[in-house]
Amino acid sequence: MMDNKTFIIAGIIVALLIGVVAVFLASGDPDGLESTALIVQGQKTLTGDTPPDAEIHEDLTGKFSYESPMPDYALGEEMGPLGGLIAIIVGTILAFLIVLGLAYGIKMAGKAT
């Protein structure tokens, strides 16, 4: 049986590999919700292809808007796939660290009381 350290390392390597492959192989087609929005806006049919110039019109009146530091898992056009790789690696490691830290913190706090 794998010990904890090996399990963590193996798990992170698998996660990073999935993320790295995703940067190059992931489909650029809109996801289910975006596709649905495009259908409603008359830019696409239910079963048809998505036109390359299709863009979701967002009505921002009464809505919140926020500019994230790495929108769409990329660091801008000029960075290209490298930006995507950095974004995915940062995100994967952060997800790991935040959950580990929080879970560990909760356990420690639980013990202290």
Binding site: N4, F7, I8, G11, I12, V14, A15, L16, I18, G19, V21, A22, V23, L25, A26, S27, G28, D29, P30, D31, G32, S35, K44, L46, T47, G48, D49, T50, Y73, I88, G91, T92, I93, A95, F96, L97, I98, V99, L100, A103, Y104, K107
Partner: peptide
């Protein structure tokens, strides 16, 4: 703890992997 954290990393990575599901859509 390690499993919870590894699952978080794995789920984050998997969610970034959009696979084509035909009909001009990915998931």
């Amino acid at each position: 703890l390690p499993l919870v954290a590894v699952l978080a990393a794995g789920i984050f990575a998997l969610q970034s992997f959009n696979l084509p599901v035909s009909m001009g859509t990915s998931g």
